[in-house]
Amino acid sequence: MTKKEEKAIQVTDQEVVEHEGLERTRERQCFVPKTDIYETDEMIVLVADVPGVDRDAVDITLDKNVLSIDAFNSSEEHEGYSVTYSEYVPGDYHRKFRLTKEIDPEKIEAVVADGVLELRMPKSEGARIKKIPIKAG
C-alpha cells in the first residue's frame, strides 16, 4: 500500500505499562511520549511529542520532585467513515521524571504548540554555575 523513499525519521509508539496493579480509568490507550531533555546554564528544557493534544488538555504536576506529564488526546472518530488502514492509535500520553532539587518549581513554564509540549524549568539561583575567573598571579 505504501512505499518509503527516505528513512530519516522513524517513530514507534511505546505503550505505558502501569506498575503496582494500577489501571487507567480512561479507555484510550496511553503512550510514553518521545522526549528530549537538555540543559543550559539557566534552565532545564523538556520537549515532548504529543500529537493530537490540545493546548489546554495537558496536566503537569510537580510532587516532591516528581514531575508528571499527562496529555489527553482530543482527536475524534470521523463519523460515517471506517478505518481501512491504521499505523497509529490516537492515545493519551503519560510520563514521569524525577527532578533534582535545583529546579525552581514556581518558575516552570509550559507551552503546547503543533503537538509538541515544551517545559522550561529555570534553575534556582543557588544551582546556577558560576564561573570563577582565574587571575594571573
Binding site: 527516505e6 525519521i9 522513524q10 511529542d49 470521523h78 467513515y81 491504521s86 499505523e87 509538541v116
Partner: peptide
C-alpha cells in the same frame, strides 16, 4: 488492527463510500 509504520509519518486512512480521510502524525 494496527500496522507498524512503514515510514515517517505514521498514517491512518479512513474511508466512506465516496470520501477519504488521511491523517498523519507530524508533531513539531
Amino acid at each position: 488492527r494496527s500496522f507498524s509504520p512503514l515510514g515517517f509519518p505514521a498514517i491512518n486512512i479512513w474511508t466512506s463510500e465516496d470520501k477519504l480521510i488521511i491523517t498523519a502524525e507530524l508533531p513539531g
